[in-house]
Nucleic acid binder design. Sequence first.
RNA 1: CGGGAUGUAGCGCAGUUGGUAGCGCGCUUGCUUUGGGAGCAAGAUGUCGCAGGUUCAAAUCCUGUCAUUCCGACCA
Length: 480
Amino acid sequence: MAANEKKLVEQITSMDEDFAKWYTDIVKKADLIDYSSVKGCMIIRPYGYAIWENIQKILDSRFKETGVENVYMPMFIPESLLTKEKDHVEGFAPEVAWVTHGGHEKLAERLCVRPTSETLFCEHYANIIKSYRDLPKVYNQWCSVVRWEKTTRPFLRSREFLWQEGHTMHRTAEEAEARTVQMLGVYADFFENDLGIPVVKGQKTDKEKFAGAVATYTVEALMHDGKALQGGTSHNFGCEFAKAFGIQFLDSDNKLKAPYQTSWGVSTRIIGGIIMTHGDDSGLVLPPAVAPIQVVIIPVQQHKEGVLDAASAIAERLKAIGVRVKLDDSDNSPGWKFSEYEMKGVPLRVEIGPRDLAENKCVIVRRDNREKAFVNLDELESAVKSGLEALRKALYEKALKNRENRTFVAENLEELKKIAAENDGYIKAMWCGDLECELKLKEDADVTSRCMPFDMEAIGTKCVCCGREAKKLVLWGKAY
RNA sequence: CGGGAUGUAGCGCAGUUGGUAGCGCGCUUGCUUUGGGAGCAAGAUGUCGCAGGUUCAAAUCCUGUCAUUCCGACCA
């Protein structure tokens, strides 16, 4: 009884009661971050950073398979450089941080801390691109950027965050468009197959697109609570930036032309997406691809003859097949360890104790459904491999089901308002393409356009808002 | 940026007529335990977020400020 009471006190907030509080509980209790003394700037703790490192490793190698080269650009942008492209600066000006002094000296020109690096890449590309033979340029950088947000939340909206930003230059519009779509595909594949997060690929409306872009493509994910999260974006800039920055190359027809540009990025926000897609009331649930610990081994009655040896042997065998494994032989009780690694979202737990030893077995428990499997030690490797794979698929299926349950269809404004008032999720509705209707839906139903999906059938011919001829199917929702 | 809540030991909290700070967990040591957050015993741990002010005296009252959090507005 006393134990039960204690457990209740220590439990995290229930996700269906208070999702926001549940989220901040998890982030702290799974030891992903700590707060720093500057608002909106978080300390990413080793366990949280290890997730990011795994994300980096996977994406970086996928990028490089497509010909991407990594570079590093400065973190400061002179004001005059930032302001060269009008739409761009208007989009970012309200949230840039400025450096005004060097030591005690006031700077002649203030420097902004990069909120994104299009302008820096453009300045550089203007210097190194002279001929069509210099194209394409396919650069990427891993870095942090700063956006002085007013409201902040760990991973989802912080003032400084880690990301990658790819910036490319191409000889033709077709090639730039192909690269934009290609990188969106890399993101979508990563989300769905590695993270188990189903996404909708689509295009942003003009209102929601990146400041200065011709077209913004996005992968959109739906969180457990029915709110949408933009997972990654890929932008096609056309030649607008190139013209503003004077980037020109001499083409094979001996004519000076402006190259076509793209940029694409994902950030540590992905970690927030993982938490809010897969987590449950016992804590984090991590997809094996990015889990810092894929299998935790918990010895039971570890002082008994042979238990720790057997646990170590299991650890070595799993390491040998490339599994990230941790053996916890600390003095904490087994029950404590079970809860601890559930909070941390470790996909599989292996228990080994005297009873198992006697039968040459171990117990393998899946984090997502807590199903216990009694596995013969001779079949350890295959059981772990298939367990991780089954979990990965199950995470995806569960998230997909949540999205399906939360996807609605609206044919007119009244319907849409009613759905939006009663549910959180995606609302599929046709749209005429006018900004006015987009604004009205925000005003009347408190939803914004998430994207115009690439692969969804039209569900009607009339705009859900004004009733005129509809151009696009749009997914509407409330976003993080 | 507006409204609400919060800030006291590593964590969670108590602390009102203002009087020199306490509980639980955790931590340290020892013994017993170990298949869902173990038990007993003995210990250690605090610029009460920060800065001013009122007062003989401030965790407590006042002002400001910083941070966290929730709800809006804004924003990717």
